[in-house]
Design a protein around this nucleic acid. Structure first.
Length: 300
DNA sequence: AACCAGGCTGCGC
DNA sequence: GCGCAGCATGGT
């Protein structure tokens, strides 16, 4: 048996792998990762081939192992960069925690969730698709739909007792018909939207680099909402998770309302001015605040 | 069994 | 511009 090569990822202050793990493992059946005994297993696609990686921590340090695939220098760097991006390891949370600590009803978060990072969805097509899947249905069902889509159309790799999947490529989904997705219990609209966006990616009308290069948040939102099925919620969510735009507020988000109601910050869902007012002190950290509020929903 | 779900579109005013 | 029905189906 060849020894499994193991590499360290540099982590910033105020990073706790356990907190991130907790988020990834919060009682939903996510077909794109597997968690076991404190480790995350994930299948990834570098320029060529596939890599099965295990991510774990030992004594505050973060490591990854290439369990399957070629541990070439290029691939090792690819994984390091992917993990850095996925767990948002380049950000200094100090300013965010400073603001939070001034907020009487939320300051507990800097202790309770200390080191939690905004877990991303680096792939823009996946982020947009995931949004559309999740629109207006409960998360459990959303994960079920994602699983069906992935198991039917994603690439996979079997290793020991498990099968690992990649989110389907846009070029594959672009060729589907609405009926095929209806069979997986997608609504007709969701099917149209996802196929439409997949086609646009395949035709090069949309890609992450072009989106990144737009000058400001508003033009990015406008660009994304051109597509059928992409409203302001989806645009903001995708920009937050994929581009890591810091100031995204997914207006209308049910989870956000619920969290604000729980914290007695907002009583009813018509008070949009109060929402703006509430986010005012958090300029530049709106996305993180939303993520932490979502995190708080998992408390009993 | 009714009501809600990490919304969006298209229509009527 | 704003409000609202309709979507389509599972979860609780």
């Amino acid at each position: 048996m060849k020894p499994v090569p193991k590499f360290e990822v540099k982590t910033p202050k105020r990073f706790k792998f356990e907190e991130c793990l907790w988020f990834l493992d919060r009682n939903y059946d996510d077909c794109l990762l597997r968690i076991e005994k404190g480790s995350v297993f994930k299948l990834l696609k570098p320029k060529s081939g596939k890599l099965l990686v295990r991510i774990f921590s030992e004594k505050t340090k973060l490591y990854y192992e290439v369990i399957k695939g070629e541990p070439s220098q290029e691939n090792i760097l690819f994984l390091r960069d992917y993990i850095t991006e996925w767990f948002d390891l380049k950000r200094d949370l100090t300013p965010f925690y400073k603001i939070l600590n001034h907020d009487p009803s939320l300051s507990y978060m800097t202790k309770s969730y200390e080191g939690l990072r905004l877990i991303g969805i680096p792939d823009l097509f996946e982020a947009l698709s995931w949004c559309i899947i999740g629109q207006q249905i409960n998360l459990t069902f959303a994960y079920t739909l994602k699983k069906r889509l992935t198991e039917n159309y994603g690439e996979k790799l079997k290793f020991k007792d498990h099968t690992y999947y990649l989110f389907p490529k846009h070029s594959v989904l672009a060729d589907l018909t609405v009926d095929e997705l209806r069979k997986l219990q997608f609504s007709g609209k969701k099917a149209e939207y996802i196929i439409g966006i997949a086609k646009s990616f395949s035709e090069g009308k949309i890609n992450k680099n072009d989106l990144v290069s737009l000058p400001d948040l508003e033009s990015k939102q406008k660009f994304l909402t051109q597509w059928k099925g992409v409203g302001i919620w989806t645009a903001n969510y995708s920009l937050m998770k994929s581009l890591r735009e810091p100031s995204c507020i997914p207006y209308g988000d049910v989870g956000l309302w619920n969290a604000l109601e729980r914290h007695r910050i907002i009583q009813n869902r018509n008070e949009k001015e109060k929402l703006t007012e509430f986010f005012e002190p958090y300029k530049g950290w709106e996305s993180y605040l939303v993520f932490y509020l979502w995190r708080s929903l998992s408390e009993a």
